[in-house]
Nucleic acid binder design. Structure first.
Lengths: 383, 383
DNA sequence: TTGAAAGCGCTACCAT
DNA sequence: ATGGTAGCGCTTTCAA
């Protein structure tokens, strides 16, 4: 493949200046027709592809929005081995699309509509990864992740001073900073769920499943506890306490070295262990899971051990991902408006990239209780 | 938000040269510890985020791979109005994830694994859009699309001379060029499907549904026709003939002006019209659809008009998207290894970005017949 | 180990 | 309408 031709090459071949070449492309109507044609012709002839880097440099600002995704592979850790096909295989809703995927899709759709392209970057392993990615975009949307470790999150504090950043699902953190936030109404959703479980199913002994290090999960847990208290009920059992390491998604500049040497935190593994250890002989009235994925993995495990849902015990999820509707039993869960969250984030980034206001906005989107078979509200129609 | 600090700012604050700043980041071990610390400290203090553009320019080559996606919105055109929620709503497998989404996911996963980030660009509307996007990446993967219109596809011929490009699902086109191709074994899959329909269900009168302008669809149609001929049967009826405009995904440099003024081709609309017009009184033995989406829309329409599948007529799909497994009746279809296709494309691009060999590779991945309820092979368990 | 300086390819301002 | 040209911010020899 040949060296990429440049404006100079095109200019020479077309017998014009580089300025004219640039204009021919960017301001077609400010160039005489014949000239423009000559330039375009020369460009085609040379296979000229303008360097995005050079352009971005010269103009300052690329029309690109970034999405800090994270390693989806570890997401399936709580699933039974069969579900973890490494390569291809039939579509499995337990693996895709998940929460992140739906949010990402909304983000992409909005960007598409507003003429922006999307830059998807890996789970950052070092602070450098973060700055490198941030340096390529006009704004960055970030999912919470185990990146809270090793100072990766801390760097965001620094980055946000020059690049607009919106944090997904990071409620509960000091909102008095430059970060923008987009989150779901965990509180309202969790309360509605508990109200249903208690008032309608007379559930009293609940067990909560989920790593409280995740801001979202923590919010849900708190709301659940409070809503139970309101009814004079005891807080839910929560077998998983906050991990010793810095909280998932925590982005405060905490002592990095403390967690630097830790093995990658893996709440999936923790959850998996707990699910496996659950006592089948002493079941609560309901397992209230912090996410649909956890609920699904739990049901799978319970079923395997002869416990039937919802006959023997109620199980609820949270998120409302596709799998919660197409697997059986369908999940009683709280749906987050994922696509909307993605779209909102993109919108904020686009606006903010221009206004450059200093303080962060927070948008909380409504959630909705969705009744399914796993609480006994719908009859199970198929296996 | 402050002006983005540059190397110069950091250099000055740290009391070193810009070269040292650069080294401190990119070659940490070639800089004295104390110096490096000073630089890092200064950088943090300033909220320094290195410009990706500048870096890309200076080094030539960004670690980014591009994916030319296309406007998913029009994809749902053949669905009943209810399915076309503009914003959020419960997850609907008829809308997501589709073929492109699964391929995209594979592409992303592979990139993630190989340390590349992904640049997702919109459906190009002008040749410029194509070059602009191509100019930002080290390699580009492209889906077939209506972009064949208005010369958008033609420009790829020019672009491929300087940027590695892999074409998805574009079989049947002259393979003697610089394009790399990743496609599914349409021929084998279609033949297996026909063999099943004819040998097992004794189907003889078939109707094919799908715009033959799509290379994939054309391949399937040809294989179907041939396989039927092999059995001494008549070719399938194909109510939709090739559109008058340049073929979808066609990237040969055809006369642009001819199609320039045309309204955006919309095979979805064509299909929708045909589906609506289908005579309920003169049904074939089976409707062999070019894609799962078409099959699903068809079944929806048939059901609405009192025709039951598979009791009254058999319907088959192609692709094996998630919806084909979770809706009822489940589809008898041919599955493409979508994630693998995406991964393969990424792999090719990464390798090729280095080797820069001149000629294109073509990889054909295997397909697999999947039996479902829509041909009567499985009993329908739920509505 | 660190500094000076020459680009990388494009845009945009100032002339003409 | 077109040309000359000074940067944009970073990397990378080459010297010191």
């Amino acid at each position: 493949m040949a060296r990429r031709p440049t404006v100079y090459d095109v200019a020479k071949l077309a017998g014009v200046s580089t300025a004219t070449v640039s204009f021919a492309f960017r301001r077609p109507d400010e160039v005489r027709d014949s000239t423009r044609e000559a330039v375009l012709q020369a460009a085609r002839e040379l296979g000229y592809v303008p360097s995005g880097a050079a352009r971005g440099l010269a103009r300052g600002g690329t029309g690109v929005l970034g999405l800090q995704s994270f390693d989806l592979l570890t997401e399936s850790d709580i699933l039974s081995p069969e579900a973890q096909h490494p390569n291809d295989g039939p579509p499995d809703p337990r693996v895709f699309p998940l929460y992140v995927d739906e949010v990402q899709r909304g983000f992409e759709l909005e960007c598409r509509q507003r003429g922006r392209s999307v830059h998807i970057s890996n789970d950052p392993r070092t602070p450098q990864d973060v700055t490198d990615h941030a340096g390529r975009v006009d704004g960055l949307a970030v999912f919470p992740s185990r990146a809270g470790l090793s100072g990766v999150a801390g760097v965001l504090e620094s980055v946000v001073r020059t690049v607009p950043i919106v944090l997904f699902s990071m409620g509960g953190v000091s909102a008095d900073d430059a970060f923008h936030r987009v989150q779901a109404d965990n509180d309202g959703g969790a309360r509605a769920l508990i109200a249903h479980l208690v008032d309608h199913h007379d559930a009293r002994r609940l067990t909560f499943l989920g790593d409280l290090a995740a801001p979202d999960y923590q919010e849900r847990f708190t709301a659940i506890t409070d809503e139970l208290a309101t009814r004079g009920l005891a807080p839910p059992a929560a077998p998983l306490t906050t991990s010793p390491h810095t909280a998932t998604g925590d982005h405060t500049a905490t002592d990095d070295t403390a967690s630097e040497g830790l093995p990658a935190a893996n709440d999936a593994a923790d959850i998996a262990a707990i699910i496996t250890d659950i006592s089948v002989t002493d079941l609560p009235d309901a397992f209230v899971c912090a996410s649909d994925q956890i609920a699904i993995a739990l049901i799978e495990q319970l079923t395997r051990r002869g416990v039937s849902v919802p006959a023997d015990v109620i199980v609820t999820g949270f998120d409302g991902i596709l799998a919660s509707r197409v697997l059986h039993p369908t999940l009683t869960t709280v749906r987050q408006p994922m696509a909307d969250m993605g779209r909102t984030a993109a919108r904020i980034l686009i606006e903010e990239a221009e206004k450059r206001s200093g303080s962060g906005r927070t948008v909380i989107l409504p959630t909705a209780l969705v009744l399914g078979e796993s609480c006994g509200c719908e009859s199970i129609t198929a296996a």
